[in-house]
């Protein structure tokens, strides 16, 4: 009887173990994604706090990788273009890092006047990282007056691959309803063009500038998980930094990232 018990226990434990292995597997793909709260309530925030900081890169100064312009040289090749997946500035400042609050459930509303646009200029997407509020339209501008196509590799929302012919200057895209990101945006006509967008449910997202700086304002007082995402350096979704924001206070949280 005892040995029978032991055997069934072993089998069950093995099953559980295999089960967790599967769970870990399915997690692997999501590790590189942003983490969103299940619900978010917009409200007026008064006397909120501020989280600011600088993101730096640790490692050898990466070489700038010039992009190979294979067509439309006149428009695309007017100036030299570089790969933007890793842009490190003076003092190791890391540009294009998303810094955000992972677990905020109530806070300020989106700035309705902010323009949610990506321009296609000189066969380059500007900005390289764009935050798109869920339910808002992302507008694709075509300053180049040449053919582009907007190819958004969504997996949770419906993927988009929409032509933007040369005379199509300003093309708003259908708003999406599910938080997702970051997803890559490409132009197949000019294969080197790449940008990342994130459809987000709340406005506490910042993207670092050339100096690696970010700032999250009007944060209601409380304790939050602070996350980051960088195209080449990955995320800290598994072990985010916990910060405590005081009403009207400012806290500083810097990050140092390495290549993933």
């Amino acid at each position: 009887m005892k040995s029978y018990l032991l055997a069934s226990l072993t089998v069950l434990l093995a099953c559980c173990y295999i089960g967790t292995a599967f769970a870990a597997d399915s997690d692997a793909g999501e590790m590189e994604m942003l983490v969103f709260p299940e619900k978010y309530k917009a409200m007026a925030v008064s006397n909120g706090g501020t989280i600011s900081g600088v993101v730096k890169f640790e490692g050898d100064m990466p070489e700038k990788k010039a992009l190979e312009i294979t067509k439309d040289e006149k428009v695309c090749g007017a100036d030299e273009k570089f790969d933007e997946s890793l842009v490190v500035g003076e003092g190791n400042a890391l540009k294009n890092t998303i810094v955000y609050l992972i677990d905020i459930s109530a806070g300020k509303d989106f700035d309705k006047d902010a323009k949610v646009e990506i321009d296609q200029k000189g066969c380059k997407f500007t900005p390289h990282i764009q935050i798109v509020p869920v339910g808002e339209r992302l507008t694709m501008l075509n300053s180049d007056k040449i053919m582009h196509n907007v190819h958004i590799f969504s997996k949770i929302n419906k993927p988009v691959n929409k032509a933007q012919p040369k005379a199509r200057r300003k093309m708003p895209l259908k708003a999406v309803q599910k938080a997702e990101g970051p997803v890559e945006v490409k132009c197949d006509v000019h294969g080197w063009m790449s940008a990342w967008i994130s459809y987000v449910p709340h406005p506490y997202f910042a993207v670092t500038n050339e100096k690696g700086e970010f700032m999250l304002e009007d944060v209601p007082a409380g304790e939050y998980k602070l996350g980051y995402w960088h195209e080449a350096c990955g995320t800290n979704s598994k072990a985010p930094v916990v910060v405590t924001v005081e009403a009207g206070g400012t806290i500083t949280q810097d990050f140092t990232l390495k290549l993933k």
Partner: peptide
């Protein structure tokens, strides 16, 4: 021409547009 089909499919449609060699799928 106006819609840019030429970019991938080429001047008279032989699939020889200037973007053709660099295209990839999902």
């Amino acid at each position: 021409t106006e819609l840019g089909c030429i970019e991938c499919h080429g001047n008279i449609g032989r699939g020889d547009g200037t973007s053709a060699p660099d295209l990839t799928d999902e």
